[in-house]
């Protein structure tokens, strides 16, 4: 528990620092950070899946489901609180994940990637043709309130920034705890050798489905956060290039460390907004080169720069050393 407690304190401190710093940041940067945090939450989900050895090329699916459900709840059903909207979006995506997860759990590598891609594009096709939700134009979402406080023109940037930072921090902490748990270790084992895991007597498919549902819940939360801050949603939330960006982010971050995904997300947002402004015709080129460099020189992502792999706790490591000494003397005899 002590490692988790340590992380909780560390993340809380980082959050407080971030919220204080936010008071002094310009509007455009606050918005950029808000988007980076919201998209980073989706990337967290991909990291959970990548630890189990699969990459979804259709995370736009749950991103859009979370976004549309939050948007519809706000416009049609009069839900006004931002936190409730995020919870609704996340829950709806998790339910979708619970339906698709068990089916997708049989698939690996390319087939998993393609099937998730297909599902997200089917949703895209449906959304584009659904005039009830605005077709390809989407619809605007009114500004919600936050825990009883109303959000207006002047404080909205900071309010959304605070909301997404707090939610992103809490979710990152939960994902970190999950990654350290026995289920988290099982995911790594599955990625390495699922045949053996099955022979150990536990269900690989169930583990994969659970990872998918967790990723869906995270994707839905990210979608809802994005919609709330943007005030608009359209079918592009489910388009494959959007999913590609999430994969890009997850690869950049690597699965060694959950917080790394926010660094990757921020980097992506920075590259996107700067190149949109200064070199609109070559920003994909810059992105592509960047991705290639990462794959070539940091194949385990930026997280691998600081995250140390989990090892035996100190006491156990000590016992292992003594046991090794005993083994050595036995062998010598």
């Amino acid at each position: 528990m002590s490692r988790n407690l340590h992380s909780t304190l560390l993340y809380s401190a980082a959050l407080v620092a971030l919220l204080l710093a936010g008071l002094m940041l310009p509007q455009w940067l606050l918005f950029l950070l808000t988007m980076a945090a919201s998209h980073g939450v989706v990337g967290l989900g991909l990291i959970v899946m990548m630890r189990g050895g699969v990459v979804s090329f259709g995370q736009g699916l749950v991103f859009a489901i979370g976004g549309y459900v939050a948007g519809l709840a706000a416009t049609r059903y009069g839900v006004t609180d931002a936190v409730v909207l995020v919870l609704l979006g996340s829950a709806a995506a998790a339910i979708a994940g619970a339906i698709a997860g068990p089916l997708l759990a049989r698939y690996r590598s390319i087939f998993f990637a393609m099937l998730t891609l297909a599902l997200s594009m089917v949703l895209y096709g449906i959304l584009v043709k659904s005039s009830a939700v605005g077709g390809s134009d989407g619809f605007n979402v009114p500004r919600p309130s936050l825990l009883g406080f109303s959000i207006n023109e002047t404080n909205s940037d900071y309010a959304f920034f605070a909301l997404s930072s707090v939610i992103a921090t809490v979710l990152t902490l939960l994902v970190t705890i999950y990654c350290r748990s026995s289920r988290g270790l099982l995911s790594l084992a599955i990625r390495d050798n699922e045949l053996r895991v099955e022979y150990l007597g536990t269900s690989v498919r169930a583990a994969m489905a659970i990872n998918f549902i967790i990723a869906a819940a995270l994707g839905g939360a990210g979608g809802a956060l994005t919609v709330i801050s943007l005030g608009h949603i359209d079918p592009n939330f489910s388009y494959w290039t959007r999913s590609g960006e999430f994969v890009f982010m997850a690869i950049l971050a690597g699965h060694a460390s959950a917080p790394a995904v926010f660094l990757a997300s921020l980097l992506l947002e920075l590259v996107r907004s700067f190149s949109n402004k200064y070199f609109p015709d070559t920003w994909q080129l810059a992105l592509g080169l960047f991705l290639l460099l990462i794959i070539l020189f940091l194949p385990k992502g930026v997280g691998s720069l600081w995250a140390k792999p989990e090892r035996l706790p100190r006491q156990a490591a000590e016992k292992a050393k003594q046991a090794a000494a005993r083994n050595a003397t036995e062998a010598a005899e």
Binding site: N4, I177, S182, R183
Partner: peptide, 8 residues
């Protein structure tokens, strides 16, 4: 398997 109990 546990979601929160540490692996180690």
């Amino acid at each position: 398997l546990s979601f929160w109990r540490g692996a180690y």
